[in-house]
Amino acid sequence: MRPVQYNTKVKLAEIPEGYSGEGFHATTFDKIIGMGRANSLWPLPFATSCCGIEFMATMGSHYDLGRFGAERMAFTPRQCDVLLVAGTIAKKMAPILRQVYLQMAEPRWVIAIGACASSGGIFDSYSVLQGIDQVIPVDIYVPGCPPRPEGIIDGILKLQDLVTSESLRRRTNPVYKELMESYGID
C-alpha cells in the first residue's frame, strides 16, 4: 500500500473569520459566499484588439490565469460573472458591449483592460468611445497599452478582493440602483 500523497503546492482559500468547532465552522453568508464567488469567477473575454492578444497570453500556459480560479472562459454572457473588456471600443461597438453587459446576470463585474477601454487611450478620435464607463459601470481599470499579463492578473486579483468583501445586499441598495439608473439600466 502506498501512503496517501498530498500535493503540498495546492493553496487553499483562506477560511473566513467565524466560530469554529469540531466539524463545523460558523460564519456569515456574506463572507462564505464572497469567498466562493471570488475563487470561481467566470470571465467573459470581450477582446477586440491588441489587449486581446495580451489577454490570450495571460490565458496561455506561461501566465495561466486558471491558477486564480478563473479557468473557465465562457463566451455566453448569461453564464459569466466578469466582463473583461480588452481593447478599443469604437462607437459602432458600444451598443453591442452594452447589450452583452445587460445580458449578464447579477452579480456582475467589469474590468476595463488597457488604456483604450479605460479612457480611449491614444485614440482621441471621432470614432472611438472615450472609455467604456460612458456606457457601462466599471469596477477595475487596468492601465497599460497594452498591459502586461502580470498587470491583467493583478487586475483580476484586485477584483477578487472586491468580490470577497462585497456585501450580499449591495446590489439591492439605493446607491447601486442610482448608479445603474445613471447608465439607464434598470
Partner: peptide, 11 residues
Amino acid sequence: YPMEDPTRRDK
C-alpha cells in the same frame, strides 16, 4: 472636420 471626439470634456 476635427479629429477629436467632441463629447469629451476632460481633455
